[in-house]
Design a protein around this nucleic acid. Structure first.
Length: 303
DNA sequence: TATCCAAGGTAAGTT
DNA sequence: AACTTACCTTGGATA
């Protein structure tokens, strides 16, 4: 076990762990007091995730716990180099100040960035990101989160760490072996066969979300739609929240309503065309950062 | 208490 | 290629 802490006071643009993990970007972390993931936080809660074991020699899943207190990040991990993992997963290497400054001035965008200063994007493990956003179709944030918990507890490898038992996110082969009926029993609804068939594609080596890495942005988005249950919107989520395409702007219901209310000239009918227009409006290079701020701002009642 | 409705959309069927 | 429609489930709103 590794425990440690580190000052994060000098990170450009700051850092806010709670908004980063609870803004609806990642469904692969959980809060210790789990109950009200969507509600107000009490003090400085611990968050934890279990990473796929591919990064370690033993292939054991890796437990990572973290909390933020007084400008410091504290962690407990089952393996060494926890800070490197956190820096990667929570994009602590982004110059958030430069990103916010490079974004074109705009009333709604400025309010969103000001209201949630320190929120960063995440780099989720690709398979978990893919599955969790397949589950996100027509679903509320809290329930998407509950679905991933159910999948992990039912199909994920267990890991004992620091006196507790944790569940890793299921491997592709574990989910591929599940039946549609079993997955429907976990309240996945019509997403159940999508999850099973996509897991099968990955488990059998026919395709992997990492295959998109290196392609141009729009080509990468098209490439991800080969997975079952993945259309343009979910593909954008995987590109943005896992594969590092910061220009990706998922056109979800919140952003579509923002376009209707604030940027009607960006509505071009087709997804690809509207996407180009709003990307340009949000600042091409980091349009996905802006999307996430606006999404969270509107969803939490901001105007 | 019963009914309705929308939730970070996608696949399949029509035109 | 662009445009409809059906789809599971559930918590909260409305009657």
């Amino acid at each position: 076990m590794e425990t440690g802490s580190r000052s994060i006071g000098t990170l450009p643009g700051g850092f806010d762990l709670t908004t980063t993990l609870e803004s609806g970007q990642s469904y692969l972390w959980r809060r210790d007091d789990g109950r009200a993931y969507e509600g107000a936080t009490d003090g400085s809660p611990w968050y934890y995730t279990v990473l796929p074991g591919t990064a370690t020699e033993t292939n054991d899943p890796e437990v990572l716990r973290v909390r933020q207190t007084d400008g410091r990040l504290e962690w407990k991990s089952s393996t060494p180099n926890a800070y490197d993992r956190l820096e990667h997963l929570l994009r602590l290497d982004d110059d958030l100040e430069a990103i916010a400054d490079s974004t074109p001035a705009d009333p709604l965008v400025d309010r969103a960035y000001d209201a949630h200063r320190g929120m960063r994007l995440v780099r989720d493990p690709p398979f978990g990101c893919l599955i969790s956003f397949i589950c996100s179709a027509q679903m509320r944030v809290a329930r998407i989160h509950a679905m991933q918990t159910a999948l992990s507890e039912t199909y994920g490898e267990t890991v004992d760490f620091d006196g507790e038992t944790y569940h890793a996110f299921p491997t592709p082969s574990a989910l591929a072996a599940a039946t549609e009926v079993e997955l429907r029993d976990l309240s996945l609804g019509y997403r159940a066969p999508y999850v099973q068939r996509t897991a099968e594609l990955v488990a059998e080596g026919e395709a992997h979300p990492n295959d998109a890495v290196g392609l141009g942005y729009e080509e990468a988005r098209e490439s991800l739609t080969r997975f079952v249950g993945v259309g343009e919107k979910v593909a954008d989520c995987v590109l943005l929240f896992s594969l590092g395409y910061l220009e990706a702007v998922p056109l979800d219901t919140w952003i579509r309503s923002a376009i209707e209310d604030h940027y009607p000239e960006c509505e071009r009918g087709r997804y690809a065309e509207t996407s180009r227009a709003i990307r340009s409006r949000f600042g091409d290079a980091y349009a996905g950062y802006t999307q996430t701020y606006v999404f969270y701002h509107l969803r939490t009642g901001g105007e």
